[in-house]
Amino acid sequence: MSIITFWNGTDDEVGTTTSSVAFATQMAIEHNIKVLLLSTSLNDSSIKDSFWPENKKKSFGFFADTRNKMIENNGLEGLERVIRSNRITPETIKDYTKIVLKNRLEILLGIDGEGETLQKQYMLIQETYPEIIELADRYYDMVIVDLDNKIKTSTRLEILQKSHIIVAMTSQRLKSIQKIDNLIKQNNILNEENTIITIGKYMDDTRYNAKNITRNLLKKRDIINTIPYNNLLFEATQEGKIIDLYFNFIRLREKDENYYFVKEIKRLYANIKGKIELLQMQRKI
């Protein structure tokens, strides 16, 4: 019943997709809720690669795959056909998702392929994202959107406006954080009520750590959220083993060096939950 959008508000590489994947997985495993992770990308297999190892196609001999390119019936490509024909309902969306954890975590993949036609199709599909997100919100407990910066500004703004919570990802660079903070202060697209600044690929062992940034730059009391860089997470996203990784993370003790990563995502969820509750009290959602 909540739409959480992970958006990279800067020009830096901050691991927005990986952060959304990690957050969605942790939510699905730790809480008994139905989560949908929605990718808005074109030709970006990061989400797919995080959950499923790449299938090596047999290219020779008797077992070779001789089939032509088939039309895609899953993901946004399949769903878009349903939308174009005005047949979409909240329940329809689930038929086009890929299941990661039954009744817990599902993924609506973006578009893959090549050619000019695909580019055009992507431009058309973009228009349907806000509608899909809104409908998915009626079926899933939590819709997590990995917002790609390649989609056109008007659609991006519409998605941000529809989001209950915006996780504005930034790098650890002071200027980037300042930029996001200024955007919030302008109260135009982002505002204090629904935006959470989060530092992606965060490193703690520097003078510019979360504590100092919050104290000296943002001049706030609550420490800025972070998603620390984690080697195991990086490896798991390459090998399609993120679920295995998270099942190992459940057993982590405080002394473990990876515990900090899990703790930070928990803190992010706590903040999101707090903001959602506040918005619900104000009857804004």
Partner: peptide, 15 residues
């Protein structure tokens, strides 16, 4: 009709 036509469109263009 729209749904079937969309499917025919995709079948012709992609397959």
């Amino acid at each position: 009709k729209k749904y079937v036509k969309e499917l025919i469109y995709d079948l012709l263009a992609k397959e």
